[in-house]
Design a protein around this nucleic acid. Structure first.
Lengths: 177, 177
DNA sequence: GAACCGGGAGAACGTCCGTTCTCCAAGCCT
DNA sequence: AGGCTTGGAGAACGGACGTTCTCCCGGTTC
């Protein structure tokens, strides 16, 4: 097995396991078992667990934002489509909230690379929303609604939080003028 | 030292340590050291760490909601005062986001008591907001803003997220009619 | 064919931590 | 005073886990 394929399989396994059970609850041996990559190669690709966690977050960020971007773009970049996408996401079987918020909660003082990955995700999302909604103030308000709906959907298990946030966003966008 | 005083000191130590560093990062021995209560008595008061965690969450819920309620009540139960309170909270030195959201992130599948304490906190908060804002739809929208602002303030470190959410809340309340 | 190299499987090591156990000092009752 | 209980301090136990080490096999090169 070649190193780049090993890295891919490791990242895929890490995403599934870390997101589903939390980073701390998943041992390196579980990642090895799921990925089919030997421990030795695992540590060649990622010298320490922190490195794998950081790569997991960066990879998930890319995939998550691409999915959102493509969905919203297919709807003419309507900001409200963001909340329709959220609604679909919340209904997915394994939905457990925002991976970045969860990781932030897991680590009291995250390693620098991990903290940076978390902040990067939120910064990029904010920037994206500001691209959809020219008024930065309103974009930031929508951002707050997105985060709130995600947290609440995760804790209550109710995907309807997306509809609540969507209704609020509609009012805020209309008030923007 | 009497058992009820021991319980108080344990809860106080647990709140400080668990909130500041995360539950998993704090060992029982650290709680013992901080509280000055012996390990033996600690395990008499709380037979397992989960019990202490659950008590910590319930205790923090009471204190947190009382503080919010009193602040808002002193301002004539103006819903917007909720966001002023948030702004003060976000500026506090040890602010690290919502203890319940953080705990939710820490445990993939929380023990039943812990999951219940987390849900209880959010349920009570929702109920409280619905008391302040008669229109349940708008109350829930404000709830989403509260959660979003808290998450973002924690991750970005910017207390100004409260002002953003406040501005949004003002528009939503005005639109309510 | 024989020495060598890479890689896999899994044992081993060290540490951390939740929980329990041991031991001892100090108070209390008769 | 002398046995008895209580509680504290901290050692000890057991398991989990991150990381490294050992051993062995299969393929490659002279």
């Amino acid at each position: 097995m070649n190193p780049t394929e090993a890295t891919d399989r490791l990242l895929e396994a890490a995403e599934e396991l870390f997101y589903a059970h939390g980073v701390q609850a998943v041992g390196m041996d579980a990642v090895r078992a799921r990925s089919g990559v030997s421990l030795k190669r695992l540590y060649q690709c990622f010298p320490a667990k922190n490195d794998l966690v950081e790569a997991y977050l960066l990879s998930r960020d890319e995939r998550w934002r691409r999915s959102l971007r493509e969905f919203v773009h297919a709807r003419g970049d309507d900001p409200l489509a963001v909340f329709d996408w959220l609604h679909d996401w919340f209904r997915e079987p394994g939905f457990r909230g925002c991976a970045f918020v969860n990781s932030f909660g897991e680590f009291g003082q995250p390693a620098p690379g991990i903290a940076a990955a978390i902040r990067k995700h939120k910064d990029e999302l904010r920037t994206y929303l500001r691209g959809l909604v020219r008024d930065h103030g309103v974009a930031d308000q929508l951002f707050s609604l997105v985060e709130g709906a995600t947290v609440l959907a995760a804790i209550t298990g109710d995907p309807g939080e997306a509809s609540t946030a969507r209704a609020a966003a509609k009012v805020l966008l209309a008030a923007q003028g």
